[in-house]
Amino acid sequence: MSSASFNYVRATELTDALSQGKRPGAAYLAGGTDLLQLWKASLTAPQDVIDISRLPLADITRAGDRLVIGAMARLSDVAAHPEVKAGHPLICDAILASASGQVRNLATAGGNLLQRTRCPYFSDAGLACNKRDPGSGCGARDGENRHAVLFGGSSGCVATHASDLAVALAALDAEIAISSASGERQLALSDLYPLPGETTAPDSSLRPGEMITAIRIVGAERFAPHSTYLKIRDRASFEFAVVSVAAALRIEDGVIAEARLAAGGVASLPWRLGRSEAALIGRAPTEQAFAAAGELAIEGARPLEGNAFKIPLLRNAVIRALQTAGDQS
């Protein structure tokens, strides 16, 4: 348990929150499920905690083919929302595979995207970790690395991203709305997560003081009839992914017209499987087509000593997710 104290500030307006949040040592608190764990473990010690949970940014709205999820919407409310359930079941699947009911009632959509890695070297302040302490090295690379990345790792970091929601959103080409005291900007979700460097490995490309205010998904309802989120984990529930796959297909006249595939648990960001997607286009949703997509998914995988088992696991998870998505109607 951390003994470090902090000042608590409740923000009631966005402009107020953003001006408080730009101060050095400030941290935003939304659901608090990640921040409080990190604080209790002495992995973070903010001077000022800016409570943004009551900002009016929790609405979930659909206008035309655009779904907007307010960043402060609680995960359970997103998963239970009629528009999300009907038009974006992939998002519901991913959320309901995350955490527990008690945590989903607290955790927010925006906060979920910014949760820190669960790499055990990050979580133990006595071990080397460039994510926690830039320049200290990466203990996982030549240590216990069963959990580590297959793609995009560097000599400085092999930690995976922990969010299920991000994997589903990556498959649906979501965009993130970001605000700061100096203005607003938008980012493709895939650009929110940088690849690690040699001595630094930031979790996100957000700048100090910036806040995610909304998640936007455009034109994704066409995938609703054929989408699924498959999460492989060490126990059946309330556990992070070893490997996960978000699969979304659009099938027209018995032929795959569009395919979206993203994998979790294999990189520092949701890993889009572009070659697998391309190979599925124009083919019938058959076992042969899915098997070929599975083989392409693992091309370029770079295993470490302890995580080579993830390669066949990823291939098979892609195949099974495609079978499930292809069978729906």
Partner: peptide, 19 residues
Amino acid sequence: CTVLVAGRRIASCLALAAS
């Protein structure tokens, strides 16, 4: 530590009292 807040269950150890 599960309690109900307005009927919804939460982990009260991860809820800041001030919030």
